[in-house]
């Protein structure tokens, strides 16, 4: 146990871009850094080659993540991380393509791209860091802002219903869907590892804290209080099945939520090419 953990504690530093200035741009205590650490440890455990991994992101706090990583990285326009990633995957089917995206990036501006990437079931791993708000632009309400929550565009409480990204992805046809929180970091690491190994579109939603906007406006306290609240509000999938809908109100289910063995888009496309185009 001890030797393995010693390796793990500084394994993250191996994958950081050497010329990048640290500390990172995020607020103190931001969950994005925790996700980055878990993601890098998952990559290290699987032993991928640095040159065989492409990390794509859009715009947002969470999408600042790939600029620190020593892989192939692509920082694209707002919401268009998944189309760019589809292009990378199509040009290089052997490459591991990972999309790091936020809730506003994936579900509002890129909502259409998100459901169509799920529908095609292309072999991309999407890590959706959900902090319930647009953090970078000043705390506007996002599609995942819960009802009655306060943001700078909903100062008297949000009247809208919110998206559940996992339900949306299952409904749209993704073949691996999981949810984790930044408190449950070892579980997040394991789920990201499973998602990377899965062939097909895999979504890992990570519930994260934005104490600078969401926590401050909704009086949820400092990062410690917010992260401890994730511990109290998270329900494991096996336990959630025995609970009533009333008991589950305000809580979220974590763990691997859905998995299926659908055919993958690149494989299907190769079949079409082999059958009709190449003689």
């Amino acid at each position: 146990m001890a030797t393995a953990e010693k390796q793990k504690s500084d394994v993250v530093l191996k994958y950081l871009r050497p010329k990048k200035k640290f500390p990172s741009v995020w607020c103190p205590g931001c969950g994005n850094g925790i996700v980055m650490g878990a993601f890098l440890r998952a990559i290290d455990k699987l032993g991928y080659d640095k040159d065989n991994v492409a990390v794509v992101s859009g715009i947002g706090c969470s999408s600042r993540l790939p600029i620190y990583l020593d892989f192939h990285t692509l920082h694209t326009t707002h919401g268009r991380a998944l189309p760019f990633a589809t292009g990378v995957k199509f040009a290089r089917p052997g490459m591991k393509v990972i999309v790091i995206t936020g809730d506003g990036d994936a579900l509002a501006i890129g909502g259409n791209h998100f459901i169509h990437a799920c529908r095609r079931n292309i072999d991309i791993t999407a890590i959706l860091i959900n902090n319930y708000i647009y953090g970078m632009t000043g705390g506007q309400g996002s599609p995942t802002t819960p009802s009655a929550a306060i943001s700078t565009t909903t100062p008297y409480g949000n009247a809208e219903k919110h998206f559940d990204p996992c339900d949306l992805a299952i409904g749209a046809g993704a073949s691996f869907v999981a949810r984790a929180t930044v408190y449950h970091t070892p579980q997040m690491e394991r789920l990201i590892g499973e998602a990377l190994e899965h062939r097909g579109f895999s979504l890992v939603e990570v519930i994260s804290n934005c104490h600078t906007y969401f926590g401050r406006l909704n009086r949820q306290g400092d990062p410690v209080a917010m992260i401890k609240a994730f511990k109290d509000n998270a329900v494991a999938k096996a336990r959630a099945e025995k609970m009533t809908a009333e008991e589950l109100k305000g809580k979220f289910v974590i763990g691997g939520l859905y998995r299926s063995d659908k055919t993958e888009f690149c494989d299907e496309y190769q079949k079409v090419v082999d059958a009709h185009l190449v003689k």
């Binding site: 001890a2 504690s9 530093l13 500390p23 990172s24 650490g37 070892p186 992260i227």
Partner: peptide
Amino acid sequence: TQCTICWVHCPDFAITSNYK
């Protein structure tokens, strides 16, 4: 006790373990 909680939750990779 080297429970790993501190460096697993450190968002800035500022903590590493010296435990061998």
